[in-house]
Design a protein around this nucleic acid. Structure first.
Lengths: 345, 345
DNA sequence: TTGAAAGCGCTAACAA
DNA sequence: TTGTTAGCGCTTTCAA
């Protein structure tokens, strides 16, 4: 049997074939320094002849960079984060980097382990959607780090780390105001996981809008459809007036939706609904769901671009420590569930 | 300003502190060979004192393994693949490996580049959901590879590579038979991307069931909701009989759903529906959608476990080249859209 | 403009 | 049982 894979050609093989020193080959590869036209051509040719490509591992060891960035997210299969990851991977590719994704499952200790693992593998940068906004141990570790880190979806202020987030508060406020503008006097906010920073912000936005309208905020945490049902039943107007619900996240929206189906309450004639975060079938439901959209791709892309800029900057000695998060606007997408377009229905 | 990060301790630092040679430390780290109890303790202590952790890059360069596996999928943000990726990452973690995910966007040339990139980074193994079942260039490359590869969702027979796939054909056949058992005489199969292996298999399953029932298969490719509408209109029974639709993939299901909404055709009283692939709100629709479920997590987990087994096996010289794909059964989840539970509605 | 040579941090012969 | 030493493939002083 033939040996299936003859050992890959190494830089020194190229050098020998081209009749030059290894240094010269290295220079050609890294495209800098003064290399004579003639030498350059000979080396290029040798590279082609051997179909040589440099060993990233060896290059990494010598110092410089590893050509890999890390990304830690609560869940890989969560649509929001997988969409972010796709955008990040795209930017990484454009910058000749690979992306290593790890899931923390919202567990600070797993998150910490993941960080250590990524560090051992010498990642050049990290994008972090942190499990907890306040994870002291993690933040200490982060602030003493040489590799650039960028926060995603959740700020990392304490560690003085820049981040890219959505305007959760403003988006929620606008959504609530839209509901209020319909004239609904009772607007519930049904939510889940209020411990997460983005959700907190949305609740704040909702509360602000309510208070500015002189109304009492009505916050309900729903762990399941039954919870949602309970608070809807508590507030539904027996006289037939419209109850409005602002669902602060996807899952809460789902529970609310299920509750309304179970209770046979028509949307939007009995209950008007507006949700934070778009979802796949939102516009194929009956009625189509009005939502606050996040520009998910942009979040990922901007975080990645910021990261690579910082990786570059650091090499240049430009160490800008601007920890103010970059805030991306959300978009209010009006479909039918909030009570607009009633005529069409 | 203090230097933020004192250079990380290296193996030789540990050796010096423990008063032993580097080999000994290496042995302790790799937990083999005969190391005296006493020496072992001293080294462990030194490791702890310096909070030393070995540099993976250096270790990789020296030979052995890189502690990274790669995964190439058509799309990272596609629910199916992101769920697979999550399962794979879990298994990778359990095997002290990192996962590098790359998207091919169903482009054979990107896929090929991705493979090269991963190889340069010395991945220990690869999970591949190939863009094309027949990608000769890729298959040639794959067959001459030393790193183990496992196919996912799509077989890689030509390259003699094992894979883990769903029983697409059987699932589709069972779904069609279920529709047929309802007594529907006309069952359409609406699909998209018939060039993909899994879809092909589903179409075959549908055709088999139809032929065994002595019925003519009615295949329609729908690129959008309008296409779906057209073929439904063509086959809907003006007399009020029920038309059945088997949607062979998620997107086709969506188009069908939209078409039926637009045409105001009631489900399942006018059109009965059954879809391949479960989706998020399938059971919250009106009516809840009957589907063929794939065990997505299992696909990812089994592929990863098979990969690590092969990585192990290869080290042991056990080179089993069993290219028969591992086939995971699907599950028919009956909800209401197929016409079951009509009484409830 | 070019090359020789010294490592990056680790592992594995080979000695002791 | 332990230590010495020679690389893994590359980049990078330093000298020519």
């Amino acid at each position: 049997m033939k040996k299936v894979s003859p050992p890959a050609p190494k830089l020194s093989d190229v050098a020998r074939l081209a009749g030059v020193g290894t240094t010269t080959v290295s220079r050609v590869l890294n495209g800098r320094m003064h290399v004579s036209e003639e030498t350059n051509r000979r080396v290029q040719q040798a590279i082609r002849d051997l179909s040589y490509s440099p060993n990233r591992i060896a290059r990494s060891l010598r110092g410089a960079t590893s050509g890999m960035i890390g990304m830690i997210v609560p869940s890989i299969s969560d649509m929001f984060f997988s969409q972010c990851a796709e955008a990040v991977e795209k930017v990484a590719r454009e910058n000749a980097s690979l992306l290593i994704v790890m899931a923390s499952h919202d567990d600070p200790s797993i998150e910490f382990e993941n960080l250590q693992l990524l560090l051992l593998h010498r990642i050049d940068g990290l994008i972090l959607a942190s499990a907890q906004t306040r994870n002291t141990k993690l933040h200490e570790e982060l602030s003493g780090l040489t590799v650039p880190v960028v926060g995603l979806d959740r700020p990392l202020r304490e560690a003085n780390i820049p981040s890219v987030i959505s305007e959760n508060r403003e988006g929620a406020k606008a959504a609530t105001e839209h509901l209020l503008a319909h004239g609904y006097s009772k607007v519930l906010c049904i939510h889940i996981k209020p411990e997460l920073y983005p959700v907190q912000e949305r609740l704040h936005g909702y509360i602000e809008a309510m208070q500015e309208a002189g109304l009492e905020p009505l916050l309900y945490k729903a762990e399941n459809a039954a919870d949602a049902q309970a608070c809807i039943l508590k507030h539904i107007d027996p006289a037939g007036g419209v109850l409005a619900v602002f669902a602060a996240n996807n899952l809460a929206a789902r529970f609310t939706w299920e509750a309304l189906r179970t209770l046979h309450l028509a949307i939007p004639s009995r209950v008007a609904m507006l949700c934070f975060d778009d979802f796949d079938l939102a516009d194929s439901l009956t009625p189509p769901m009005s939502v606050v959209q996040q520009t998910v791709d942009d979040l990922g892309r901007n975080a990645a671009e910021l990261l690579f800029r910082r990786m570059q900057g650091q090499a240049d000695g430009i160490s800008q420590t601007n920890a103010d998060p970059m805030r991306l606007p959300t978009r209010l997408v009006i479909r039918d569930s909030c009570g607009c377009h009633k005529i069409k229905t």
